[in-house]
């Protein structure tokens, strides 16, 4: 009865089927991409290596995750920058 009432008054809140579908969709993004925690860790350390050539970043605060919204999946990287490096001449001038 209580369940019925809560459902009646909270039309907008998602039903357990919607929760199931959303959880499934997220888990399948990882499954299908073959993304393992190890792979994300490797990606993370390579990102740190490359970005460190240009700026000083907070390695502890670095977050890399696969995220899926509406119809797409994105690789979301949150990289806190501590300080910019003074770039060497050859990189600035480029080819």
């Amino acid at each position: 009865m209580l369940e019925f009432l809560t459902r009646l008054f909270s039309r907008e809140s998602s039903t357990s089927k919607d929760i199931a579908k959303e959880r499934l969709r997220l888990v399948l993004v990882h499954d299908r991409a073959g993304v393992s925690p190890q792979l994300l860790q490797a990606l993370k350390s390579e990102l740190i290596k490359v970005i460190s050539n240009y700026m000083e970043i907070d390695e502890q605060g670095l977050e890399v995750n696969l995220d899926s919204s509406e119809n797409q999946v994105a690789l979301i990287a949150n990289i806190p920058i501590k300080q910019m490096k003074r770039l060497p001449e050859n990189i600035v001038s480029g080819p």
Binding site: T15, S16, K17, D18, A20, K21, L24, L28
Partner: peptide, 16 residues
């Protein structure tokens, strides 16, 4: 249960 939206429907599963 599908009517009550407490189980994924045929369309949900096929879609996924």
């Amino acid at each position: 249960m599908v009517q009550q939206k407490d189980m994924m429907s045929i369309e949900d599963i096929i879609d996924i």
